[in-house]
Simulated assay, not measured.
Amino acid sequence: MAEFEQLMRTAALVGTALFAVLLLARAAWAWRSRGERAGLRHMPLTVRLVQGLRVVALVLFGLGLLASLFVLQRGTFFMPAPLQAGFAIAFAAYVLLEVVLAAWLPRRRRAWLWGLGALATFALGALGLLFVLGAARAFAYPPLADTVVLARVPFEGTWVATGAGASGATNHHDRIASQKYAADLAALCDDGRLFRGDGGRQEDSCTFGAKVLSPVDGVVVHAIDGHPDGASREVLPGNHVIIRIDEGRHVALAHFRRGSVLVKEGERVRAGQEIARAGNSGNSDFAHLHLHVQDMPVYDLRGSRALPWRVAGMERRRYLWWSLVRDGFLLSNDHVRPAP
């Protein structure tokens, strides 16, 4: 885990530095050659068309890459917020300068250079369009009227969604019908990291042993404990609890630490009540909390149907700032904590 975290941070630093250098070099070139330009209105129609397409391609690519950074790209939750902000600002400034130069101050070039430019524009636009379409899919969550609203998030402190949403663009559960809207969540340490030290032991994870709270008022209809942490994948959810909200709506929470489940079948629980400790039991690669809503009182991968869900109130950081969200949903990379 420590190696992957370092990889993400290094990649972000290199990317930020690259765009900063490109920005400075482009600005210096524009200043030196300002007298060699001809306005777009004096250019042939084909040149103006290419320049117009280039502007569109750059904007699409810019929006797509920023969407990827904050929502689509798996693993960017390892990047601290200042690094994300630095990358976003450097990249946005570079794209803005390129758009200005392409739209207002084009240079006269040979035909073959314009051909290469048109080809590059097509490739950049296609890539940007793929990014944007992926982001559009990610944000296409079912409307409030069709979702189950949870009273609160099932934890204290700040956690991050390592996979969530209604699309495969942000959620690896999407391919399984019974878990389509599931979310995997991991707790953050006080310094914003996912683990202490080098993360070599499961106890280094700030998720392992963290309190898990009931997100709803309801009745426990299924409670399993006793499966070892990080040793057995035979029982998919490992140690888990299912809480019935009402007929046909049940909240499933899974991968608890062995011996930590505090509730029993038939027990009524209140939202905010501690029910277990997060762990690494079942089909789990690292300590995390799995949450989904389903129509059955048992964890049945083939027979149950997943239901979309939202949270009545929470604080969420999807980009660079925190905001209070009512009846909101989660996507990959969202940082979330209880509403004040």
Rank of each mutant, 00 (worst) to 15 (best):
R257D: 12
W112Q: 12
T46E: 12
L253T: 10
V235C: 07
F155I: 14
G230Y: 02
H292M: 12
V336C: 03
G134Q: 04
G238V: 07
P142Y: 11
A138W: 01
G15T: 14
G266V: 03
L188Y: 00
G62T: 13
A145R: 08
A161F: 06
A30C: 06
A177H: 11
R316A: 13
R310Y: 05
Y94E: 01
A278D: 05
A271N: 03
E5V: 15
S304D: 00
V71E: 01
V132K: 06
V269F: 09
R137L: 13
A287E: 10
E156G: 09
L307W: 01
R34W: 02
R305I: 04
A136N: 05
L144F: 03
D334H: 05
R201M: 14
H222A: 12
T10L: 10
P228F: 04
S167T: 11
A140T: 15
T147F: 01
V219L: 12
S214L: 06
F122H: 11
L124S: 11
A111Q: 04
G86Q: 15
T10P: 00
A140V: 11
G64W: 01
G272F: 02
L58P: 02
L150V: 13
M314R: 10
I243T: 02
W159C: 02
Q51L: 15
G192P: 01
R233I: 15
R258A: 03
A252R: 07
P142S: 01
P215W: 10
S304P: 02
L253I: 14
L301P: 04
G128W: 08
R318W: 13
L45Y: 05
L307E: 01
G86F: 13
I89R: 03
P143Q: 12
W159L: 04
L113H: 14
Q179K: 12
G165I: 06
F78H: 12
W114R: 14
A81P: 02
A120Q: 07
L124V: 15
H172W: 14
G86E: 10
A92C: 09
A103Q: 04
S304Y: 04
S205P: 05
G192Y: 08
L83P: 09
D334Y: 06
